[in-house]
Computed example of a mutant assay.
Amino acid sequence: MIKNIAFGAFLLVSGFFFAQNTAMAGAEAKAFVSKVTADTKEIKTLQSDFTQTKKMDFLDKSIVTYGKMSLQTPNMLSWKYTKPYQYSIVFKSNKIYINDQGKKSSVDAKSKTFEKINKLIVGSSNGTMFNDPEFTVTYFKNGNYNVAKFVPKTSQLLKYIKQIELFFPKTQSTVSQVNMTEASGDTTNIVFKNTKINASIPASEFTL
């Protein structure tokens, strides 16, 4: 469960896309990265409702869950799944706090994998993920979105992640959708809506 939630958390929003993606030219990609980085530099908090869809080879039906994400820089992140079950996970101060329908626990987040997940989630809100040395990043576009595709360089991350695609609507500089393909071939997709930027977040959102 925690692996699915943690990697689902990294996906700041996603859905299914059938539009044809074409590669950006070098100058175009550079301009895109510069704009996103500049526009998101002032983001301190981010809140959004989300729908997560997970497809696994051994299941005929996709698993669909709903919840709310709250992020506060520099290092606090909360994912609260509310339907069809209640499950919360909070990244805070190098720890992961979990509330599984009333059963609470914590995990040391200093391991390389969890540290990387947390860093990339926060980075996706402020553009710093483009500079992560452990990913090769390529850039694409279609009629509605600019797309950044991340492929892990390290063998540790490749055990879990094959690739991640972040979708930026042409009219905004924050990620609106993300698709992740795991090493197993399973996919996780999260769609965010009702996003609020720099709105006050009560401390209780990061307490379980």
Rank of each mutant, 00 (worst) to 15 (best):
residue 2 I to E: 10
residue 3 K to A: 09
residue 7 F to R: 00
residue 8 G to I: 02
residue 9 A to I: 10
residue 9 A to S: 14
residue 15 G to S: 14
residue 18 F to N: 12
residue 19 A to S: 15
residue 22 T to S: 14
residue 22 T to D: 13
residue 22 T to P: 02
residue 30 K to I: 08
residue 31 A to G: 08
residue 31 A to D: 12
residue 34 S to D: 15
residue 34 S to T: 13
residue 34 S to H: 08
residue 41 K to W: 05
residue 46 L to Y: 15
residue 51 T to P: 01
residue 57 D to Q: 10
residue 59 L to G: 02
residue 66 Y to F: 11
residue 67 G to C: 04
residue 74 P to S: 09
residue 74 P to G: 09
residue 76 M to A: 13
residue 79 W to A: 00
residue 84 P to A: 07
residue 91 F to I: 13
residue 92 K to W: 06
residue 100 D to N: 03
residue 100 D to M: 01
residue 106 S to M: 13
residue 108 D to E: 06
residue 112 K to H: 03
residue 113 T to A: 04
residue 116 K to W: 00
residue 117 I to M: 00
residue 119 K to P: 01
residue 121 I to N: 00
residue 127 G to E: 01
residue 136 T to W: 10
residue 142 N to C: 08
residue 142 N to I: 09
residue 143 G to Q: 14
residue 144 N to Q: 14
residue 146 N to Y: 15
residue 148 A to H: 07
residue 150 F to H: 08
residue 151 V to A: 01
residue 160 Y to H: 12
residue 160 Y to K: 07
residue 162 K to N: 14
residue 162 K to P: 08
residue 165 E to Q: 15
residue 169 P to T: 06
residue 172 Q to P: 07
residue 174 T to L: 13
residue 176 S to R: 02
residue 177 Q to D: 07
residue 180 M to G: 01
residue 180 M to H: 04
residue 183 A to F: 03
residue 185 G to W: 05
residue 192 F to I: 12
residue 194 N to K: 11
residue 195 T to E: 13
residue 197 I to D: 09
residue 199 A to F: 11
residue 199 A to R: 12
residue 201 I to D: 11
residue 201 I to Y: 03
residue 205 E to A: 14
residue 208 L to I: 05
